[in-house]
Design a binder for these strands. Structure first.
Lengths: 330, 330
DNA sequence: TTGAAAGCGGTACCAG
DNA sequence: CTGGTACCGCTTTCAA
């Protein structure tokens, strides 16, 4: 079922069929109608691979994320999709599960597909890969990794500031012994985040922090919290690397017969929608996924109007809700 | 950057380059090495469109879902991805947001990509589309819609049984006035679900049900619940069409100063992971997304061993948790 | 307004 | 083992 068959049935050339299908140049109404009818009758669907090959262009952008189950990444993906649709681009998504091998596979896939642009919203990016990407002339956006260079835009969140706000707040309401729940992702910027927490805490002489890490999931958050609670007594707050894990942290705390926030406070990061539907609603730090999505589209989709900066830094806001309260006095 | 450039650099023919890249037939080690080096030096990435075109095969399956934000759909997608990866297939995902126009677009996209198989996990499927798909010779799996025919597998969940179990349970613990939270999706099978609830309830003379619908999201669940709570007093339980919306229902109930489950019980459907991380943990009905994902792969990916039935019906299990309790005595 | 034909970047068959 | 080459299905000049 190809152009030729349609052409034959409509008694025209393949060139003409191609023209009507692409609304290109002028075709006499009568012939156009004949072609349309042939297309319908044959239930013809153009082969997109052939089209891409012949056309040479691309009209699609790739988005690679670390964990599509985490609403944070999903939100970014959706934001990009919205922007892309508006520009009549399609977006191809790939998920790495924080697996560096998968990342390589995904990147090759995207390049193989000749995407017009690529967004890497991942934390397992290693320098070698950045190099590989750098060789190519395809525009790339990194989230939180990579050095800005030619054709590369960098979006980063000032985690340090976000964490400091969170920790300052907890300190101000009396917390002196915290647990930090991180997730497994051996490379940057995750470890960096743990360091940020440690350093933020180090600004206070009398603030103690203990850490644990597990998978990026509610279950992971629960396990890490359990580890923390068993190993260290007297923790009055659990600071989680993101909202997704914080959900598990709250569950674990309650399963141990403790109350949130009366006995132990919990904080997240990202401010995903779920954070406000938790019970108690989660205190967190807002990261504007929509804005990130927009920025990605702006820097990946050719656009004469806006010129996007090569490095964008976001200063995240603290969002106070009900999962935090003054530290329990022992 | 194409085969020819690589061939030239390695001083071989394009055919040979193709061979080493596909591990096909034998190539002398020396030449293979030369080719490899050229590939590396040129940072060559084969054009997948050209490859697909020339190869004619496909090794990819499409999955279309109604709402990727709802973990239910995401879980199915992931299950399919796992199965597909194992068979060295890639999966292309498309999201319709319950929009029938998007569905058409997505289906055309998949056919245009010449996927080896297509899974439509959507509720906005209309008969015309089923016909369009039916014309094609590509194997299709429908979830919950469509009549089984040649090349078409149908997976359906026996919602009626699931709902009956839920309602029987609620009735048995004293509930006589229920609210049902559905979501907007004008076509089947959603309305069907509302009907099922109504009919399940009709088995009892003294069981009253009122319904409301909104978007498939926690926020939608919250709004529908608000509507219900304002319009009808004396409701002792809110039955939600799925877990995702139930999360919003619980929030709304509590925001009105009521307790779950002491004042009002809440139930979900699907048993997504989140259901056990809610507080209180959600009473729901389990739908085995893994099994569904497996089945999809089995019927879409050529496989000499198993022969899959053309119609598979799942009888879902009731999962009792903490969001339900005996009806409050007024 | 329409047709013929030259690619686009690979694959795979046929010789050598 | 390796090279030559006929497609794959569509887009896009160039002429007619």
């Amino acid at each position: 079922m190809n152009l030729e068959e349609v052409a034959r049935r409509a008694k025209v050339s393949t060139a003409t069929v191609s023209r009507v299908l692409n609304n290109a140049s002028f075709v006499k109404n009568a012939t156009r109608a004949r072609v349309m009818r042939a297309v319908e009758e044959l239930k013809y669907h153009p082969n997109l691979h052939a089209r891409n090959l012949a056309g040479g262009k691309s009209r699609s952008i790739g988005v690679i994320v670390s964990n599509i189950e985490n609403p944070f990444f999903l939100d970014i993906y959706k934001a990009v999709e919205t922007g892309a649709r508006a520009a009549d681009y399609e977006v191809i998504m790939a998920n790495t599960d924080y697996n560096s091998g998968q990342l390589v596979t995904s990147i090759r896939l995207m390049i193989g597909r000749r995407v017009a642009g690529l967004a890497a919203i991942v934390s397992e990016m290693d320098p070698a890969l950045i190099d590989e990407l750098n060789g190519n002339r395809i525009p790339v956006v990194f989230y939180d990794v990579g050095t800005p260079r030619q054709n590369i835009t960098n979006i980063r969140v000032n985690y340090r500031r976000g964490m400091e706000k969170l920790i300052d707040y907890l300190y101000s309401i009396g917390h002196r012994k915290l647990g930090f729940v991180g997730h497994h992702a051996l490379l940057r910027p995750i470890n960096e985040r743990e360091n940020v927490v440690l350093e933020s805490a180090a600004r206070y002489r009398d603030l103690e922090v203990h850490t644990a890490a597990d998978l990026d999931s509610p279950e992971g958050g629960r396990r890490a919290t359990r580890t923390l609670l068993i190993a260290y007594s007297g923790l009055t707050a659990i600071v989680c690397v993101n909202d997704f894990m914080a959900i598990g942290a709250m569950r674990e705390i309650r399963d141990r017969g403790l109350r949130v926030p009366e006995d132990i406070s919990v904080t997240g990061f990202d401010n995903v929608t779920l954070a406000q539907f938790c019970y108690p609603a989660l205190t967190t730090v807002h990261i504007p996924r929509d804005q990130i999505g927009h920025t990605i589209c702006d820097s990946l989709i050719p656009n004469d109007k806006t010129r996007v900066e090569h490095e964008i830094i976001i200063d995240p806001e603290l969002v106070l809700r009900d999962s935090t309260a003054p530290a329990a006095r022992p």
